[in-house]
C-alpha cells in the first residue's frame, strides 16, 4: 500500500527528500519545530513543482545510478585538481604556451539535466570551457587544443564524464 503510493509519486518523494536534507543541513539542527516547518514547505514545493524540477525527475533512482553518481563526483574532483595544476603550469610558464581553439564535440545525452551537468563538468576541467550548445553539439573553447577533429575531441573531452552521466540521466 505505502510502497504503491511511493512508486506513483516517486518524483514528489525524491524532491521532498532532497529539500528536507537541504533544510536540515542549512539549519544544522533536528529540533521538532524546525523539522515540522521544513516538512510543510518541502511538501508544498515538491507537489507544486513536481514536473519542472528536472534535476530530480530525470534522475534514475536505481542502485547503478547512485553508484555512478559517487564515481562521477570522484572522477570530477580528480579532474578539477588536474585541470588546475595543468593550467597553473601554463600560467607560470614564461612563454605562456597556449594553443586556443573553439572545437565542436558531440554528446549522446538526451535529458536537459544530463547535458547541463556535462557542460558544467567540461567547463571546470582541463582547459576546456563550454561556449554554446546546439542540440547534440557542444562548442568548447580549449586553451591548449590537442585536436580539431570532432570525434577525437569528443573522445578526449566528453567521454570521461558522459559514461557516468549516461547511467545517471540517460
Amino acid at each position: 500500500m505505502i510502497s504503491d503510493i511511493l512508486e506513483r509519486h516517486r518524483q514528489i518523494v525524491g524532491v521532498f527528500a532532497a529539500l528536507m536534507i537541504f533544510w536540515v543541513l542549512l539549519n544544522g539542527t533536528v529540533a521538532p519545530d524546525v523539522l515540522a516547518l521544513g516538512a510543510v514547505v518541502a511538501l508544498l514545493i515538491s507537489v507544486a513543482f513536481k514536473d519542472t524540477l528536472s534535476f530530480f525527475s530525470d534522475f534514475r533512482f536505481t542502485p547503478a545510478a547512485v553508484w555512478a553518481t559517487v564515481l562521477y563526483f570522484a572522477y570530477f574532483f580528480k579532474e578539477l585538481v588536474v585541470a588546475n595544476l595543468k593550467l597553473s603550469a601554463v600560467v607560470l610558464h614564461p612563454a605562456l604556451p597556449i594553443k586556443p581553439g573553439l572545437v565542436k564535440v558531440r554528446t549522446n545525452l538526451k535529458t536537459p539535466m544530463g547535458r547541463l551537468l556535462l557542460a558544467n563538468s567540461i567547463t571546470l576541467t582541463p582547459g576546456t570551457l563550454s561556449v554554446e550548445m546546439d542540440g547534440q553539439w557542444l562548442y568548447v573553447h580549449w586553451v591548449v587544443m590537442e585536436t580539431d577533429d570532432v570525434d577525437e575531441a569528443t573522445a578526449k573531452i566528453v567521454r570521461g564524464f558522459e559514461r557516468f552521466l549516461e547511467v545517471m540521466y540517460g
Binding site: 578539477l80 585541470a83 588546475n84 593550467l87 597553473s88 601554463v90 600560467v91 607560470l92 605562456l96 597556449i98 586556443p100 573553439l102 567547463t123 571546470l124 576541467t125 582547459g127 576546456t128 570551457l129 561556449v131 573553447h141 586553451v143
Partner: peptide, 24 residues
C-alpha cells in the same frame, strides 16, 4: 594563480578559463 592568469592571458575566452577553474 587565477589572478596571474587573468593578467597574462591574451583574450577574453582564455581569461574566463583561468578565472573559472582557479577560483573554483
Amino acid at each position: 594563480l587565477g589572478g596571474l592568469g587573468l593578467y597574462r592571458m591574451p583574450d577574453t575566452f582564455n581569461r574566463i578559463q583561468v578565472g573559472t577553474k582557479a577560483t573554483t
